[in-house]
C-alpha cells in the first residue's frame, strides 16, 4: 500500500482513551478511500501495552514521555513519522491535540486542518469539513502539501468497532527529553454545581445579555419553571456575571436537561459541545444568522431584553389562571 495514515492515540498515564477509537473511525473512512495502511502511535513511558482493535500499534517509549508536554509529543510524532512516512496524521482536537498538532505540521512542513467535524467523499475526491465564521458557516477544505495533519473533534465520528481483531504491537525505545519545558504538574478542578447538574430546565445567559443587571431577567425566567437552574457561556463567566462552575461547554459542564434555553448565546461549537444532548433547545437571539439556531428546536429572533419580560408576563398570566 502506498498510502499511509498515522493516528496518535489519546492517552492518560499510558491508558488509551476512548476518543482514540473515534480517530480510528475517521482513519478508516479516509483509508477506505485511499486504500491506506493505518497505524496507531502511542507516545508514552509504557513498555507493556495492550494491542488495540483494528490497527497496528507503534509505541514510542521513553521515560521523558511519562507525562504530556508539547515538546515530547512533537518529538515522538516526528520520530514515528520518520518511520511510517504517513500521508495523513490524525490527532484528537483536545487540549493536548491543539497544543502540539500545529507544531507537528509546521515541523514537517505539511498542511494542517484543525477541529475537523466531518469527511466528505464525492467525485473521487475527499474534503474535510469544519466550522468557521463564528460557527455560522461550514468550510470544505482540500488537502495541500503532505503530510496533512488533521485534528478531529471529539464526538464527530462514532467510535470504531472495538471488537475488531487486535493488531500487532511494536515498541520503539527512544530517548526523548523535553529541554525547554520543566516542572510540569497538573491539577484537577472541583467545580461541582449540583443544582445545575440535576436541573431539568437550564436557562443559559451569553454575552448577549449585555450587563450583569440583566442576569435578573434570566433568574426570573428560570423561576417560571420547576427544577430549573441558570448557567452561562464562557464569555458570561469571563465577564464575572456568573461563577465558572456555571459555565456550559467544552471547558465547562456538559448538561443534558429536558429544556435548555440559550439567551444571547451565539452557538460556537465549544458551547454546543456542552449542551447538544439537551432534549429540547430554545434560543433567543437578535441575529437571525446566529449559529445557535442551527442547534435549536425553537428559534426566537428577538432582543432578549424585550422578549424575556414578555415571556415572564405570559407565564404569570397562566400561573394566575388569567388565561
Amino acid at each position: 500500500m502506498d498510502h499511509s495514515i498515522m493516528i496518535i492515540c489519546e492517552q492518560s498515564e499510558g491508558r488509551i482513551l476512548p476518543v482514540t477509537y473515534e480517530l480510528l473511525a475517521c482513519a478508516a473512512r479516509i483509508g477506505g478511500f485511499y486504500n491506506s495502511s493505518i497505524t496507531a502511535v502511542l507516545p508514552g513511558n509504557t513498555p507493556d501495552t495492550d494491542a488495540i482493535s483494528g490497527a497496528d500499534l507503534l509505541v514510542i517509549n521513553s521515560p521523558g514521555l511519562a507525562e504530556y508536554t508539547a515538546e515530547g509529543w512533537e518529538k515522538a510524532a516526528l520520530l514515528a513519522a520518520g518511520e511510517l512516512k504517513p500521508n495523513i496524521i490524525i490527532i484528537a482536537h483536545t487540549s493536548t491535540g491543539y497544543d502540539y498538532a500545529p507544531r507537528v505540521a509546521a515541523l514537517l512542513d505539511g498542511s494542517c486542518i484543525t477541529s475537523v467535524s466531518g469527511i466528505e467523499l464525492s467525485d473521487g475526491s475527499i474534503r474535510y469539513r469544519r466550522s468557521g465564521f463564528h460557527g455560522k458557516l461550514d468550510m470544505l477544505y482540500k488537502e495541500g502539501k503532505q503530510p496533512l495533519v488533521i485534528t478531529v473533534l471529539p464526538g464527530a465520528f462514532p467510535a470504531y468497532d472495538q471488537q475488531a481483531a487486535p493488531g500487532m504491537v511494536r515498541y520503539m525505545n527512544a530517548d526523548i527529553q523535553p529541554v525547554h519545558t520543566s516542572n510540569v504538574h497538573f491539577s484537577i478542578s472541583d467545580q461541582s454545581n449540583t443544582e445545575l447538574e440535576h436541573a431539568e430546565v437550564v436557562i443559559a445567559a451569553g454575552k448577549g445579555i449585555g450587563k450583569a443587571e440583566n442576569l435578573e431577567l434570566i433568574r426570573e425566567m428560570a423561576a417560571c419553571f420547576n427544577r430549573s437552574a441558570i448557567a452561562g457561556s464562557r464569555v458570561a463567566c469571563d465577564n464575572g456575571w456568573l461563577e465558572y462552575n456555571a459555565q456550559v461547554g467544552l471547558t465547562g459542564k456538559k448538561v443534558s436537561p429536558q429544556l435548555y434555553v440559550a439567551c444571547g448565546i451565539s452557538g460556537s461549537m465549544q458551547h454546543i459541545a456542552g449542551m447538544k444532548d439537551s432534549k429540547t433547545v430554545v434560543s433567543i437571539n437578535r441575529d437571525p444568522d446566529a449559529a445557535i439556531f442551527k442547534n435549536s428546536d425553537i428559534c426566537i429572533i428577538e432582543d432578549l431584553e424585550k422578549f424575556i419580560p414578555a415571556f415572564i408576563r405570559e407565564a404569570e398570566k397562566h400561573h394566575e389562571g388569567r388565561v
Partner: peptide, 18 residues
Amino acid sequence: YETVEKVLEAGSDRAGLT
C-alpha cells in the same frame, strides 16, 4: 498548503421552528 474549496451553510441537527 491546504485550501478552502467551498463555504456552505452549517449543518443543522435540529428541526428549528422559527
